[in-house]
Design a protein around this nucleic acid. Structure first.
Ligand code: MN
Ligand code: MN
Ligand code: ZN
Ligand code: ZN
Lengths: 148, 148
DNA sequence: ATTGATAATGAAAATCGTTTTCAATAATAC
DNA sequence: GTATTATTGAAAACGATTTTCATTATCAAT
C-alpha cells in the first residue's frame, strides 16, 4: 500500500466528514479510486472502477460524490478538445496539468511564472487579470516509446 | 460598416466555398454574427441573434455551421469553469484568449513565451510537449468601472 | 435562363450525459 | 439501542446535441 495515497485518502475522508458528510461505503470506494488514479476519469469510467470493489453502487452516487469533492476543491474537472467530463485530483498550491494525449496519464507541474505576461496583457487591454488556466499536452515517456 | 470585419466575413465565406460548401442564407447570417461578436456565444445565443435578421433558420443549422467553422479552424470552443459551450472566432497565429468573467467580452493576446517552461517540464516528467492551452480571466475595462 | 445533381435545410424524433424525485436505508449523535 | 436525518439506488425527467428524413435551394453544366 502506498503511504502517500493512503494519506491523501484519509485526508479527503476527513474533509468530507468535517463538512458534515457521512462516511459511507460508496463514498469510501469512490475516493479510494480517485486518489489512486494516475489518469483523469469520466464519471462512467469511475463508476465501472468503483463497481469492481463495491457492486451495487449507483452512477448517481458517483456524480454526487464528484460534486462534493469538487466543492471541497479536492477534485478538478479537466478540459480537453475532445470533451470536458474527466476529473482529476486537484493540485496542492499553484500547479497546472500536463496530459498525455495518447493514454490520458496526468501529471501536475509548477514553476510557471506568468506575472510579466499578465502585466503586459493588463496594460495592453486594460483588463484586471484575476485567474489563469494553463495546460500542457504531450506524450508521456511510455507512449513516446510505444510510438517509436 | 467595419472593413476588418467585412473582410473576415468574406474570407470565412470563401473558405467555406472552397471546401465545397454552398453559400446559403442561413450560413451567411451565422457567419455575419460570429465575425462581429465581441463575446463568445452559445449555440442558443447565436441562434437568437441569427433569427433577428434571418427568421426561420433552425437551431440545427447553427450547430452544423459551428461544426463546419470549427473544422476549418475559423472558430474555437471556449472553456470556462461554468461550462464549455461558447464559441469565439479563432486566433490568427499564436494567440490566446482573455475573457471578462463578468460580461463575457473576449480578447486575443499574444506575446507569451513558455518555451523555457516546456523544457523544464519535459525534463522533469519525460514528456514530449506538443500543445499548450493558456487562458486569462479577469475584468474588462468597462466592468472594472461598473464594479467601482 | 433552364436544368439536374446533390448539398443544405428545418421539424421531429432519438440520443447522450446529467439531474431530480422519492421511498427505503444506513450513519451518526444521543 | 434509538431517533434523527443524510445518503442511497431506481426510475423518471431534463437539457443540450445529434440523427433522420422528406423538402428546398444552390450551383455547375448546359
Ligand atoms: Mn500558473
Ligand atoms: Mn502560447
Ligand atoms: Zn501516455
Ligand atoms: Zn466585462
Amino acid at each position: 500500500m502506498d503511504l502517500f495515497e493512503q494519506g491523501m485518502e484519509n485526508e479527503w475522508l476527513r474533509q468530507l466528514g468535517e463538512r458534515g458528510s457521512r462516511l459511507t461505503g460508496p463514498r469510501r470506494a469512490i475516493v479510494r479510486i480517485l486518489v489512486r488514479s494516475r489518469r483523469a476519469l469520466e464519471p462512467l469510467e469511475l463508476f465501472d472502477a468503483v463497481r469492481v470493489e463495491a457492486p451495487g453502487v449507483g452512477l448517481v452516487t458517483v456524480y454526487r460524490t464528484l460534486d462534493a469533492l469538487e466543492a471541497l476543491g479536492l477534485v478538478q474537472r479537466i478540459h480537453e478538445s475532445g470533451g470536458c467530463r474527466r476529473y482529476l485530483r486537484a493540485p496542492h498550491g499553484h500547479q497546472h496539468v500536463l496530459l498525455c494525449t495518447r493514454c490520458g496519464q496526468a501529471e501536475l507541474f509548477d514553476g510557471d511564472d506568468l506575472e510579466p505576461l499578465f502585466a503586459q496583457v493588463a496594460a495592453r487591454w486594460g483588463y484586471q487579470i484575476e485567474e489563469h488556466w494553463l495546460q500542457l499536452f504531450g506524450l508521456c515517456p511510455n507512449c513516446r516509446k510505444m510510438k517509436a
